[in-house]
């Protein structure tokens, strides 16, 4: 299996792409989870679907970069709608997220089926954005993912200190004179970038797992933000590469869902067995004194 990874060109490309996706969504997902925006990722990835199809309809191109930009723009508009609904109506965050998620996705579906009903075959393959098909990643896809992902990580590194304080204590950040609103927009934009990178490999439906699960896993092992963010990226990459290798090893194993199972397994193991926060140790701590008293 490992030798395949080293010598099989296609597998190597796909694994590299999934790995990049895992790192970027893991790192930016950590901030999303800490800022209580776990489900915003879910809403934005569903909302990206109409953007992908519209980008294709307008440009007639299936270039990954074009479709990623379409996805990012639509995801952004979805996020803006969520924020506008929360701030101007009595509907709370959950309702706004569910509403935008499902109606944008529905719109994407209408566009997709409409395009598919047209006689020309140029649209073939757009539906892979629903569940993702990592196996279809080509070298130029991976290059686009690396470029967008690298840029997103670089921006985060530049504004690390400010993003950290914004996530921990926004009031204090504002009292220091930081442009809190702009920074918040920046972090959300980076998250949108991470999502648009991952859609081709895991699809709009399962993308949210790659935002939430690596961060949840990483949080259990450390109490340091820096360590958590790095670990989250590592977990994301491990799950991305691992999922590709595993699904390549057996027949009829769809890559996207396998990647999700891998990252969820990492999260569950971390929740149960991480050194200090592990629920298993916690359970022992709670139950042992009782047992002693009984003896």
């Amino acid at each position: 299996m490992l030798s395949n990874l080293l010598f099989d060109y296609t597998l190597r490309t796909v694994a590299l792409g999934s790995g990049i996706m895992g790192v970027v969504s893991g790192v930016l997902g950590a901030f999303a989870v800490l800022r209580r925006q776990s489900l915003l990722g879910d809403a934005m990835s569903h909302a990206a679907l109409p953007g992908i199809v519209l980008a294709f309809i307008i440009t007639g191109s299936k270039e990954p970069l074009v479709l990623m930009i379409g996805a990012a723009v639509a995801g952004w508009i979805g996020a803006l709608f969520v924020m506008a609904i929360i701030s101007t109506t009595r509907i709370k965050q959950d309702g706004a997220l569910g509403l935008i998620l499902a109606t944008f996705f529905g719109f994407g579906l209408v566009l997709l089926t409409w395009v598919q009903a047209r006689p020309d075959a140029a649209q073939a393959g757009l539906d892979r954005y629903l569940f993702g098909q990592a196996a279809t990643l080509l070298e130029r896809d991976v290059a686009a993912m690396a470029a967008i992902g690298g840029a997103a990580l670089l921006v985060l590194a530049l504004f690390w200190k400010e993003c950290a304080i914004l996530s921990f204590d926004p009031d204090f950040a504002r009292s220091m004179g930081l442009p809190v609103h702009l920074l918040s927009v920046l972090l959300t934009s980076l998250l949108v970038a991470a999502i648009s990178i991952g859609l081709q490999a895991v699809g709009v439906v399962l993308m949210s797992a790659l935002i939430v699960a690596p961060a949840v896993a990483a949080r259990q092992w450390t109490d340091r933000l820096g360590v958590m963010v790095v670990l989250s990226g590592v977990f994301g990459a491990v799950a991305g590469v691992g999922g590709v290798v595993l699904s390549g090893a057996a027949a009829r194993l769809p890559t996207g869902p396998v990647i999700v199972v891998c990252i969820s397994a990492l999260a569950l193991i971390s929740l149960l067995f991480a050194p200090r926060r592990g629920l298993v140790w916690n359970w022992f701590r709670v139950n042992r004194p009782v047992a002693r008293q009984g003896a």
């Binding site: 950290a164 921990f168 009031d171 204090f172 450390t222 109490d223 340091r224 958590m228």
Partner: peptide, 17 residues
């Protein structure tokens, strides 16, 4: 109560802020 005390950061880091 204005911040999330489960945030992964140490006492020293908070003061450095």
């Amino acid at each position: 109560n204005s911040v999330d005390w489960d945030f992964p950061t140490s006492v020293l880091d908070v003061v450095v802020m």
